[in-house]
């Protein structure tokens, strides 16, 4: 029981890493788009660097956070973020139907990842307070 405090510290550190992984993933997506199929050097380097950063941050976060929940949050941040920042920074504004269907896809993948979570299975009675 004495390691409850250190568990909490590592849990919050893991969540910081997960949010960072989501932010890195947004930069990765925008860099891949900006690289113009890897013909622009600066964006290409940025894409590679942020791919590795995302992979590292995600792997650290998922040592502590449940994989289903972790992927749901990470995928949600990456997808929403790339749509929002893509429209603002790269001037790729979506039409209303496109934004609607995009929202359906993103909600679907978050729902799917949460449904894959060990911790969120309905038949398990012990809910984990985090």
């Amino acid at each position: 029981m004495s390691n409850t405090a250190s568990n909490q510290t590592s849990t919050s550190r893991a969540w910081v890493m997960l949010l960072l992984a989501g932010a890195f993933e947004i930069v990765y997506a925008l860099s891949v788009a900006g690289s113009q199929a890897f013909t622009v050097l600066s964006w290409s380097i940025s894409a590679i660097v942020f791919f590795l950063l995302t992979l590292y941050a995600l792997s650290v976060a998922l040592k502590t956070i449940d994989v289903g929940i972790g992927y749901a949050v990470w995928a949600g941040i990456g997808a929403v973020g790339s749509a929002v920042f893509g429209s603002v920074l790269l001037d790729q504004s979506l039409t209303l139907p496109q934004a609607f269907w995009l929202a359906v896809i993103i909600a679907g993948v978050i729902w799917l990842k949460l449904a894959s979570s060990e911790k969120l299975q309905p038949e398990k009675s012990e809910l984990v307070a985090s």
Binding site: Q36, A75, A79, S82, A83, G86, Q92
Partner: peptide, 19 residues
């Protein structure tokens, strides 16, 4: 993905890809 994003908007292409 980068080849696809030559045509797709990044938000759309990226989201379809991961999902």
């Amino acid at each position: 993905l980068s080849l696809a994003l030559l045509e797709f908007d990044v938000g759309v292409g990226y989201s379809i890809w991961t999902s």
